[in-house]
Simulated assay, not measured.
Amino acid sequence: MTVQDPVTGRTRFAVVPASYVFLLRETDPGSGTGTEVLLQLRQNTGYMDGFWAAAAAGHVERGETAEAAARREALEEIAVADLELRFATAMQRTAHDLPIDERVDFFFTARSWSGEPRIVEPAKCADLRWFRLDALPEPVVPHEAVVLAGLRRGDLPALSHHGF
């Protein structure tokens, strides 16, 4: 999708920003058995239904920072607050199957929060489960799988790309 710049009159493409939160926890701390991530199974959203995805994610609203959007989405989707967010990566993404195909995604992790994660929007979320980073379910939303693989390996760059 393109928009016309009101100042220059030039045509530019529109970018949709979104924030994602991966809640992480250690399984049996001290045992070396690994890290788990909380994922939701999408349903009735019109995008990647039937795929596992970040437990909380959504568009950044006008006048909202990426961090504020991440906190809002976590409260709205899984009822957790007071997240200690850590920036993981920003992903420039193109998705040729969407009406607005240019995306900038901000990924955060959190290992500390208040509240017990639960499904708040059952019409959009069929399941909510913890999975080891080295034993993820199938299928995972493809661009999110890239981030999860980088988290598992410990080599996730600050800026990543998908779909180019």
Rank of each mutant, 00 (worst) to 15 (best):
E67N: 02
D49C: 07
E73D: 02
T8F: 11
L83K: 08
R118A: 15
H59D: 15
L38A: 10
E77C: 07
R86E: 15
R71Y: 00
H143I: 00
L128C: 04
Q92A: 12
D155A: 05
T89G: 10
P157L: 03
F106M: 10
V146H: 06
R25C: 00
E73V: 07
D5T: 02
V3S: 09
N44T: 03
I100A: 10
A14G: 09
D97M: 05
S160R: 06
G30N: 11
F13S: 12
D82G: 09
G9N: 01
V15W: 09
G154S: 09
L148N: 10
D134F: 09
V146I: 12
A54D: 04
V147G: 03
D82I: 02
A70Q: 05
A110I: 01
M1A: 14
L148Q: 08
T89A: 14
P142M: 07
E116Q: 14
S31R: 07
V37H: 04
S31D: 04
D101V: 07
V3H: 00
A18C: 12
V21Q: 07
I100S: 07
V60T: 05
E116W: 00
P142S: 07
S160D: 14
T35A: 03
I78M: 09
T45A: 05
C125V: 15
S114M: 04
V104N: 13
E144R: 05
L151Q: 06
P29N: 02
G30W: 01
E61V: 07
R25A: 08
V140D: 01
L156M: 12
A90L: 11
A68S: 11
A55Y: 06
V15N: 06
K124T: 09
G154E: 11
T45Y: 02
D97K: 09
A57F: 15
R111A: 10
R152P: 02
V147R: 00
V37A: 03
W52V: 08
A126I: 00
R86N: 12
M48C: 08
H162Y: 15
V3Y: 10
V16K: 15
L24T: 09
R72P: 04
Y47W: 08
P17Y: 11
R118F: 01
F51K: 02
R103S: 07
F131I: 04
F164G: 09
P17F: 12
A53L: 02
A81Q: 14
R42E: 11
L85T: 01
D155L: 11
D97Y: 14
A55N: 14
F87S: 15
V16G: 06
H96D: 14
